[in-house]
């Protein structure tokens, strides 16, 4: 399973690679990283729907996570990837906007990796 992680914090890559080191080693999950909404869209354009799950931060400079979500749901529909949104604020506004835009799930920072692992197993 390929997962695209979108976050403007670069160390998120090391963090995911360490948190999921067993899953990565066993070849259960493969991670790709994009450090902005623009990069994520570029990846999706080049690689189509390789990534079955997109995990995106909301608060990013440039294209925000919500705008990225809107574009993904518009442009990449067959088959639609699962999009989970992550935000530090976890407020109602962002939650509702994300849900209205078609987010499949909603996670709040700090990420609980045990919960995330459970959710990934169900996909």
């Amino acid at each position: 399973m390929k997962v695209l992680v979108v976050d403007d914090e670069r160390d998120v890559q090391v963090l995911f690679e360490q948190r999921f080191r067993k899953e990565i080693r066993n070849g259960d999950i493969q991670f790709v990283f994009a450090f902005s909404g623009e990069e994520a869209l570029g990846y999706l354009k080049d690689h189509g729907q390789e990534a079955v799950l997109i995990l995106s931060d909301i608060n990013m400079p440039g294209i925000s996570g919500l705008e990225l979500l809107r574009q993904i749901k518009q442009k990449f529909s067959a088959p639609p990837p699962v999009v989970m949104m992550i935000t530090a604020y976890g407020d109602e506004d962002n939650y509702r906007t994300a849900m209205n835009l078609g987010a499949d799930d909603f996670l709040t920072k700090p990420l609980d990796f045990a919960i995330l692992k459970d959710k990934l197993k169900q996909i």
């Binding site: 963090l15 360490q18 948190r19 920072k109 700090p110």
Partner: peptide, 17 residues
């Protein structure tokens, strides 16, 4: 608050790892 939360998350996460 947001800017402090992010590095603290990293500190907590990497410590746990």
């Amino acid at each position: 608050a947001h800017e402090i939360q992010n590095p603290l998350n990293f500190v907590n996460n990497f410590s746990e790892i």
